[in-house]
């Protein structure tokens, strides 16, 4: 018992908790003024709720990324949702066969805007090593993708890199982007209404 107490006494003073970097703005007593898109971008960036659409080996690497060694929750992704209605980020991890493609599309259309898609692994990005009749050669044949992470499977550090890029996209996205003509054209190209 006594050596535990010694350890506690020798432990370094707790550091002050760190906060997310605030966007540039004006502060005063009791107020902080910044532009809306920066504030909303900051909020969206740090509280993305992912939908892990894990099909195969990349799913196991994602489970490793999610657990304590690499820890996704420090990026605000503590809550994984398996319901598309409650998630922002569709992480497609693993091979998508042609049998599964309609299911993937259905899940994508059920998500509410704004939504981002992360394609993890070689199979999801381009069909991977499976150049065969039954594998969809890349999910960007059925849904629009924002970030691709190559690798077979990608290391957890690469996954985190991809997530940081998604966070960058989420932070810097213009608020009207989902209503813009460019985005509508993109959805029409994929025949999603």
């Amino acid at each position: 018992m006594s050596d535990k107490k010694d350890e506690l006494e020798k432990a370094p003073a707790r550091e002050k908790p760190t906060f997310v970097e605030p966007p540039p703005g004006h502060t005063g007593t009791g107020f902080f003024a910044t532009s809306m898109d920066k504030a909303i971008g900051m909020a969206r960036k740090n509280s993305l709720w992912p939908l892990p659409f894990a099909t195969s080996c990349c799913g196991i690497e994602f489970m490793s990324t999610m657990s304590s060694h690499y820890d996704l929750s420090r990026f605000g992704m503590e809550r994984l949702s398996f319901s598309p209605r409650q998630s922002d980020l569709l992480m497609v991890m693993g091979t998508i066969a042609k049998k599964m493609a309609p299911v993937l599309r259905e899940v994508y259309t059920q998500m509410a805007e704004p939504k981002w898609v992360l394609s993890m692994g070689a199979c999801a990005s381009s069909g991977g090593i499976f150049d065969s009749y039954s594998v969809l050669q890349g999910i960007d044949r059925v849904i629009p993708v924002d970030v691709y992470i190559p690798g077979c499977p990608p290391r957890p550090e690469q996954v985190i890199d991809g997530i940081l890029k998604i966070q960058e996209l989420a932070q810097n996205e213009s608020l009207r982007r989902r209503y813009s003509k460019e985005y509508e054209d993109l959805l029409t190209k994929y025949k999603i209404d």
Binding site: T55, G94, T95, A97, K99, M100, F130, Y133, S134, V135
Partner: peptide
């Protein structure tokens, strides 16, 4: 749903 045709490849 994840048939990758291993035997054929």
């Amino acid at each position: 749903y994840i048939h990758r045709a291993f035997e054929k490849i």
